[in-house]
Design a protein around this nucleic acid. Structure first.
Lengths: 129, 129
DNA sequence: CTAAAGCTTCCAGTACAGGGGAAGGTCAAG
DNA sequence: CTTGACCTTCCCCTGTACTGGAAGCTTTAG
């Protein structure tokens, strides 16, 4: 698969994929005789993982650490366990805060639901946006 | 309350608070006769909200939009409702991805747990970090 | 054979969220 | 009445995660 196809499939850009390779998030791609990067679908899985990590608020550096662990198939020492524990604690905190915020926003949204429609007539500029 | 106290209480810095004021996330603070910013505890609540928003992966611009809605006490038009819906959809997606990632990491961490301790002896550099 | 689309590297620029530090004003303690 | 802690504005710098664009090579279609 060429870089353009992969980017499309992964919902990103060729620029970003080269950037990820540069940052060590993707292994240096195989090359065709012409010098083009040549990917397998494995890369797609990897990019999805990166996207999930980002959605969780991890930095690319943190994602790379986790990928390195995954790449070696097994986690062989305390440092690695500690790293994963730190990430998990981090993520659990984020999950709690996210639930909190969701509730707050849902409350606001609920107020919006029960407002008279003509409170914001079409010829009135909505100053809240 | 002066800016230093507030920063301390909110777990942030004076720099950041002035930056938030500049960006419209905090209303321009009252001033003492000497020109110092003078805050009430209300600001603390607001900063906590901002922090929760950030933990949820919202940008400061998005947080500001939500705060603007909150500030006017009521959500008066479709645009606002749509904005909140967009944020909620956004957050629900993040919550799902976060759960996913948590499972993945917990799996890895579990492997780490069941590894022989001496696989990573003290005189062996842990190459995974 | 040529044109267009897609790829290569390289360098520079952008947006976001702040942080550093200068130059100077304010306030409470001694 | 001075010293030190804290405050003010202003301007520039930093790190993260990309993005744009130039100059040139490769591949596919007509």
């Amino acid at each position: 698969m060429r870089i353009g196809e992969l980017a499309e499939a992964a919902g990103t850009t060729t620029k970003t994929l080269r950037f990820y390779e540069d940052q060590g998030l993707l292994p240096p791609a195989e090359r065709t005789p012409g010098g083009y990067r040549d990917y397998t679908t494995e890369s797609l899985t990897r990019i999805d993982f990166i996207h999930r990590g980002q959605a969780a608020g991890l930095s690319l550096a943190q994602i790379r650490q986790v990928l390195d662990i995954r790449d070696h198939g097994q986690a062989p020492c305390d440092h690695v366990r500690d790293l994963l524990d730190a990430r998990l604690t981090d993520i659990d905190l984020k999950l709690r805060q996210l639930h909190d915020l969701r509730d707050t926003l849902a409350g606001l949204r609920d107020q919006a639901e029960h407002v008279e429609p003509d409170t914001c007539s079409s010829d009135q500029v909505c100053r809240y946006l």
